[in-house]
Amino acid sequence: MPPTDATAHAATTATDTGADPSPGTAGGSAAEGTDSEDTLDLRLPDELIALFAAEADTGEARSRAPMASPASMAAPAFVSAPAFVAVPFVAVPPFVAMADDDLLDHVADWGPAVTPAGVFQLVPVQVDRDLPLIDRWMNDPAVAEFWELAGPRAVTESHLQAQLSADGRSIPCLGVLEGTPMSYWEIYRADLDPLARLFPLRPHDTGIHLLIGEVADRGRKLGSTLLRAVADLVLNKRPACARVIAEPDLRNTPSVAAFLSAGFRFSAEIDLPAKRAALMIRDRSLRNLL
Rank of each mutant, 00 (worst) to 15 (best):
M1W: 04
P3K: 10
P3A: 14
P3E: 11
T4I: 09
T4V: 09
D5C: 04
T7C: 15
T7I: 10
A14H: 10
A14L: 13
D16G: 11
D16M: 04
G18W: 03
A19H: 06
P21D: 12
S22N: 09
G24E: 14
G28E: 14
S29E: 12
A30C: 09
A30F: 02
S36Q: 13
D38Y: 06
T39Q: 12
R43I: 03
P45S: 07
D46V: 08
E47I: 00
I49Y: 08
I49V: 15
A56F: 11
A56T: 12
S63A: 15
R64A: 14
P66F: 08
M67T: 13
A71M: 01
S72V: 01
M73V: 01
A77M: 14
F78N: 13
A81F: 06
A81Q: 11
A83M: 08
V85G: 14
A86Q: 13
V87M: 11
F89R: 14
V92P: 02
P94W: 01
M98Y: 11
L104Y: 03
D105K: 06
H106I: 04
A108I: 07
D109C: 00
W110C: 07
W110I: 05
P112F: 02
P112A: 00
A113L: 00
T115S: 03
T115W: 07
G118D: 05
Q126Y: 05
L131I: 02
P132D: 06
N139A: 06
V143S: 05
V143H: 03
A144T: 06
W147F: 03
L149D: 09
G151V: 06
H159E: 13
H159Q: 12
L160A: 01
A162M: 10
A166I: 05
R169Q: 07
I171S: 08
C173E: 00
L174K: 02
V176L: 01
L177V: 03
T180K: 15
P181V: 07
R189F: 00
D193M: 04
L201R: 09
D205A: 01
T206I: 04
L210R: 13
I212N: 11
A216E: 14
D217Q: 11
D217I: 03
R220N: 11
G223R: 05
S224I: 00
A231H: 00
L235F: 02
K237H: 06
A242H: 10
A242R: 10
R251K: 13
A258R: 02
F259L: 02
G263D: 02
F266Y: 15
A268V: 07
A268R: 15
P273E: 04
A274Q: 13
R276C: 05
A277P: 13
S285A: 15
S285T: 09
R287G: 04
L290Q: 13
